[in-house]
Nucleic acid binder design. Structure first.
Ligand SMILES: Nc1ccn([C@H]2C[C@H](O)[C@@H](COP(=O)(O)OP(=O)(O)OP(=O)(O)O)O2)c(=O)n1
Ligand SMILES: [Mg+2]
Length: 1149
DNA sequence: ATCCTCCCCTAC
DNA sequence: TAAGGTAGGGGAGGAT
């Protein structure tokens, strides 16, 4: 977002409000059917003309989300990693002269684009494949007229880059600007961007001023009022650059982010000033009869009865101590979901889809009782022309008006006609950042929107009435709504809690004299009678038109958007109002193409849109602009493709146990949902939101704030919904993220590759193919079956068995084991198909089914017991109880020498207050890996570890032992990490910390272990693969060794291309089982050379690759410590040179 | 080419 | 204070 977008704009929301006057307050007068069929109605009357506004659906443009999105966008176009920081040494300056500057290259340049880009990136700049508001400069030698208007003010000649590099510093940009417009302003801004502003004496200073946006804001107001769009752009660009440039964002900066979102989005504030009555303070309700809001006891006097009435609402009572539950509290998830509107509407949507599905399935001639009523009513009214509907498809989009508010008003008739919003009642204070779930149409006249923060809404409307949620009632009404429509027709797609699409064609064909309009009128009447809530209906020949029509119909009306009117109407619409164009796509369209309306969009050639939006999206957008929408309605109940549980609120952890606990609970929740759906999954993924570097505590209490998002996934060896299995996997995945728990802001778990208990036939056939076939070909088989099933409604994907390399024997066995278990599992699930919860019997059953294959693979029973050990003690005991296992197991295991190291991982985490962070705790990682191994193998591994390290696994020190190769350095690093952690500076990965986990099935790693128990690492080399112990990599460098002058690219085995080197390394890692120190030195030197000689892109790409390889290494690979060393060395070099870390994860690249 | 993984975007 | 979930479409880029 930008300052530009915050600038005042004409208050067009007023217009929108006037539009909604047309039907006034919905009431019980159902006969009043506001049918409008005028397709030429200008959307301008309905639409806020400003670039930023709350959407009609409001959901997407809410302060918090905007801020998050904004944060994401900072990275969105980064093609390569930025080079950090101002170099202190002369050496590094040359790489950093463009630090904080981003460019987009437009059209032909000299040197040509690829070269220019390479040069620019190598010297610290960021390349954007497209211009955006976050792009500092557009580089061009000339611009087309429209481009000039768009980019003019920030277009710079390519020479600037070339000359700057030549002179080793960023030159004054003024001389290089392509156009002269607003010259003065440009100077200011550009110099600011370059950090020259306040220190002309030190022009090569590349640091970015902290308060760029502030000073710049000032400059823009002083600025020459030129072309408005240009000015907007100017300001906007600078602000964005500032944000990009900052490595650190202070809390107040975040404040700036979030505030600016609000400001931007708020429709003009005219209203608030004209209406500012003394009710200014009117809130302070204590809904629940619980704690009264903080301030102003007198203000509550003004409060209308609503607050009083709502005291009985149970949905909003705080905890006894008045503190919100956080994710560390027991029962948090349940509590949270009990209060989450988004959760409720998601769940209810699913429910309604099921309801419709069932109604359809069980339909008979009686089903649509009201259909005959409709028929007779038609007859009564007009038996004059009994013609049958002959035209094409007629779809109706039916949507309840301001759903939550309407429901809330059912029990509060005295509030009808007043501006009402639904929110957490305790969030009704003036400064509340509580989300408004739903605003009544009266409130919308003030510019209040769904998803807006109360705080903002109160500014727009001081007389706002706040009512609390009533989730049960929403569900009830929602159900009535669907049943009501289903009493007329069953050609229904439930597309949200209060929204459906009806294919009216069959009814129209069946009922003589029926028309879309009178059918819609009838349906509206039925719905109103049933629910007492008004529905609006949009009619059109495809989904798009029906959807657009219902917007026109609201509130409380009908609109038929006919084909002949569609095109002209759509062309006049804002692109944002196209379904599928959200905040981000709108932004791209405006920034890059100057497109605001659909008419504008139609003028852009498809080929220009594709690179930015992707093939499908680009085509879709253009089709929609033409009124074409080929998507059909999905009345059939479809099997879900995924099941997920997300909690991105209230996540604040301090210690590993918090994480452990939470993962257990969230996995239980997930498991429960899978069970409800009778589904098992063979793929698990975990999503982690982490506080973005520099972001402070979010403005919204308990909110996730500005975050980075990370996903890791892993296939489950056996399709399952066992929560312990999921939990185990979750534990292993979360450690891959290398982020300390304190930084977690959100956690989500997802199951994919679902199979359902009631479809069995396919499973068998797949199984058969897999069992009698070597694994390598089994994979191909998998591919085929997947493809085949893509078209079928239920996917039948077998567990993915990535086994790229050898280890055939072992894998094959495992594979068979899997299949076997599969067989056994299935019939049991069939036996108990209906209504069970996650109970012990179920789990135990599953386990016992699998015991027969236990010799070949991880024996489920063992694993479960081991898993118990991994749990906090209390929970473990609880589980023992559940499973009917003696608690003694825990102690027996704990006391065994082998498992003693697990003890330290125990729940209470023992060690005197010190947080043993996930970030640097290797022990837990290994455990979770070990847990997955077959019992005997695991023991062997443990023995090996102990012996190899020459140490006893006593009081939980295994993790340090593991770090053997560089243990002292490690301790150092660990301390550093702790420090960084406190500084909120966690982003630097550290490789000697052994945070890794197999992302591949256990079978792969346990193969070599299976064969041998010798503690020597070298033992693990496979004889067949062993090469002679010569050094594998032969490093050579073209040209002479003139360190500073040498600009030739380093080579590895004479290979210089990234792809070649990549392959070489891959091969080496696979084939060299006994790496020599020379190998390591070669590699290390190669990487360090790349870095020191400035081959940043190559270094970055290859290091990422190496990191990936590292993470995927077999647990036992001798390369593990060696790669760690190489990575660490490279990182260190980089750090010294560039004062930053290489981003080794693949994000945002 | 096609799959896989991770990510973004959208809708309510 | 505050309860920012959930599923699906889709794309980029690496692995195969
Ligand atoms: N940001 C949002 C958007 C919607 N909802 C909930 C409350 C809404 O009442 C319901 C339905 O959303 P709609 O988009 O259908 O909006 P309304 O029904 O409120 O208004 P209308 O359909 O009349 O535009 O979903 C929500 O909780 N948060
Ligand atoms: Mg609605």
């Amino acid at each position: 977002m930008s300052l530009a977008k915050m600038l005042p704009r004409p208050p067009s929301s007023i217009l929108e409000a006037s539009n909604s006057v047309k039907n006034g307050v919905p009431n019980a007068d159902s006969s009043k059917n506001n049918v409008t069929t005028n397709g030429t109605m200008s959307p301008a009357n309905k639409v806020v003309s400003g670039r930023r506004r709350f959407g009609d659906n409001g959901f997407e443009e809410q302060g918090g989300y905007m801020a998050v999105k904004k944060a994401k966008l900072d990275n969105q176009f980064n093609c390569s990693k930025r080079v950090y920081g101002a170099g202190e040494s002369d050496d590094s300056d040359v790489f950093n002269i463009f630090d904080g500057v981003s460019i987009y290259i437009n059209g032909y340049t000299n040197p040509p684009e690829p070269e220019l880009r390479e040069l620019f990136i190598r010297h610290g700049g960021t390349f954007h494949p497209y211009n955006s508001s976050r792009t500092t400069f557009v580089v061009a030698t000339n611009l087309s007229v429209p481009s000039k208007r768009l980019y003019g003010s920030k277009t710079i000649k390519p020479d600037w880059i070339v000359d700057s590099i030549k002179s080793g510093k960023a030159l004054d940009t003024r001389a290089y600007m392509l156009y002269d417009l607003n010259k003065e302003k440009n100077q200011l801004t550009l110099t600011q961007v370059m950090g020259h502003k306040s220190s002309p004496s030190k022009p090569e200073n590349t640091s970015i001023p902290k308060n760029l946006q502030l000073s710049n804001g000032g400059s823009s107001t002083n600025g020459i009022g030129g072309d408005e769009s240009i000015e907007d752009f100017e300001v906007e660009r600078t602000v964005e650059t500032a944000n990009i440039s900052q490595d650190r964002v202070s809390d107040s900066d975040e404040e700036f982010f979030e505030c600016s979102q609000d400001a931007v989005m708020s429709p003009r504030k005219i209203v608030s000033s004209t209406i500012s009555i003394e009710h200014a303070e009117t809130k302070t309700e204590n809904q629940e009869g619980a704690a009264v809001t903080s301030d102003s006891s007198s203000a509550s006097i003004f409060n209308e009865p609503l607050q009083v009435e709502d005291q009985n609402s149970k949905s909003d009572s705080p905890q006894k101590d008045g503190r919100m539950k956080t994710a560390t509290d027991e029962g948090f998830i349940e509590d949270f979901f009990g209060r989450s509107r988004l959760h409720v509407i998601s769940e209810q949507k699913k429910e309604m889809q099921i309801l419709v599905g069932n109604l359809r399935k069980n339909s008979d001639s009686q089903s649509c009782s009201n259909l005959s009523k409709f028929a007779s009513e038609i007859e009564d009214k007009e038996d004059s022309s009994v013609q049958t509907w002959t035209e094409n498809v007629v779809l109706m989009h039916i949507d309840l008006d301001c759903f939550f508010a309407s429901v809330g008003l059912l029990s509060r008739p005295h509030l009808r006609g007043k501006p009402v919003v639904v929110t957490h009642s305790s969030g009704a204070g003036k400064d509340s950042r509580s989300d408004i779930a739903c605003a009544s149409y009266e409130a919308r006249k003030f510019g209040v929107r769904n998803g807006m923060w109360v705080m903002e809404a109160k500014k727009l409307c001081t007389t706002l009435q706040v009512i609390p949620y009533d989730f049960e009632e929403y569900k009830r009404i929602s159900k009535l709504f669907f049943e009501a429509v289903a009493s007329v027709t069953l050609d229904i797609e439930a597309c949200s809690v209060d929204e459906m699409i009806v294919d009216a064609t069959p009814v129209l064909k069946k009922v003589p004299g029926s028309t879309p309009e009178n059918l819609a009128t009838f349906i509206r009447k039925i719905v109103l009678e049933t629910t007492n809530c008004p529905a609006s209906i949009g009619i059109g020949s495809n989904r798009l038109l029906a959807k657009l029509a219902v917007k026109l119909a609201k509130p409380n009306g009908i609109h038929h958007l006919k084909d002949c009117d569609a095109t002209s109407y759509i062309q006049s619409m804002q692109v944002r109002d196209l379904p599928g164009v959200g905040w981000s796509n709108e932004d791209k369209l405006v920034d890059n193409f100057g497109v605001k309306t659909c008419g504008d969009l139609l003028k852009i050639p498809l080929k220009d849109l594709k690179p930015m939006f992707g093939e499908k999206t680009a085509e879709k957008m253009l089709s929609l602009c033409k009124g074409i929408d080929s998507s059909d309605i999905k009345a059939e109940l479809e099997r879900p493709k995924s099941i997920s549980v997300d909690v991105n609120f209230g996540i604040r952890f301090t210690k590993d146990d918090d994480v452990t606990n939470f993962l257990i609970n969230i996995c239980k929740e997930l498991s429960g949902r899978a069970e409800k759906m009778q589904a098992v999954s063979s793929h698990f993924s975990l999503k982690l939101l982490t506080r973005k570097k520099g972001a402070g505590e979010p403005l919204k209490q308990g909110g996730h704030g500005i975050v980075d998002s990370h996903t890791r996934s892993r296939s489950l060896l056996t399709p399952t919904r066992n929560w312990q299995e999921l939990y185990k996997t979750a534990c292993s995945l979360i450690r891959l993220m290398r982020v300390p728990p304190t930084e977690y802001r959100g956690i989500g778990v997802t199951l994919t590759d679902l199979k359902f208990d009631d479809d069995k036939s396919k499973r068998k056939s797949i199984q058969r193919t897999l069992t009698d076939m070597p694994i390598s070909r089994g994979q191909k088989m998998l591919t085929i079956s997947q493809k085949k099933n893509k078209s079928a409604s239920s996917t039948e994907k077998h567990a993915n068995i990535p086994s790229p390399d050898g280890s055939q024997n072992s894998v094959e066995v495992i594979e068979n084991g899997t299949s076997t278990r599969h067989h056994h599992l299935h019939p049991d699930n069939q036996e108990v198909p209906e209504d069970y919860s996650v109970t012990k019997s179920k789990i135990v059953q599953t386990q016992s089914n699998s015991t027969d294959s236990s010799t070949n693979t991880n024996a489920p029973v063992d694993v479960d017991i081991n898993m118990l050990l991994q749990l906090p003690r209390e929970i473990a005991e609880e589980q023992c109880q559940i499973f009917g296992i003696s608690k003694d197991v825990l102690d027996i295991k704990e006391n065994s020498a082998l498992d003693s190291n697990m003890k330290s991982e125990g729940p209470t985490g023992g060690n005197d207050g010190k947080i043993s962070s996930y970030y640097d705790n290797v022990e837990t990682v290994d455990n979770s890996f070990l847990q997955a191994l077959p019992d005997n193998v695991r023991q062997d591994v443990l023995i090996q570890l102990q012996e190899a390290k020459g140490r006893k696994a006593t009081n939980g020190n295994l993790q340090y032992d593991e770090q053997q190769p560089c243990s002292s350095r490690q301790a150092l690093e660990r301390d550093k990490q702790r420090e960084k952690l406190q500084n909120g500076d966690y982003e630097q990965p550290s490789y000697n910390l052994e945070i890794r986990e197999l992302a591949t099935p256990v079978s792969k790693s346990h193969d070599p272990l299976d064969q041998q128990v010798t503690p020597k690492i070298s033992y693990f080399q496979s004889p067949t693969l062993q090469l002679e112990p010569q050094k594998f990599w032969d490093m050579s460098i073209y040209g002479n060794v003139l360190p500073s002058e040498d600009i030739t690219i380093p080579a590895l085995n004479n290979l210089t291309e990234v792809d070649d080197v990549r392959n070489l390394i891959r091969d080496g890692l696979q084939t060299v089982a006994d790496p020599t120190t020379e190998d390591v030195e070669c590699l290390e030197k190669y990487f360090i050379d790349l870095i020191t000689k400035g081959w940043i892109q190559q270094a970055s790409a290859l290091l990422k690759f190496l990191n990936r390889q590292y993470e995927q290494l077999d647990e036992s690979s001798p390369w593990v410590p060696l790669l760690a060393e190489i990575l660490e060395a490279a990182q260190k070099t980089w750090r010294e040179l560039y004062q930053g870390e290489i981003e080794l994860d693949d994000e945002y690249q």
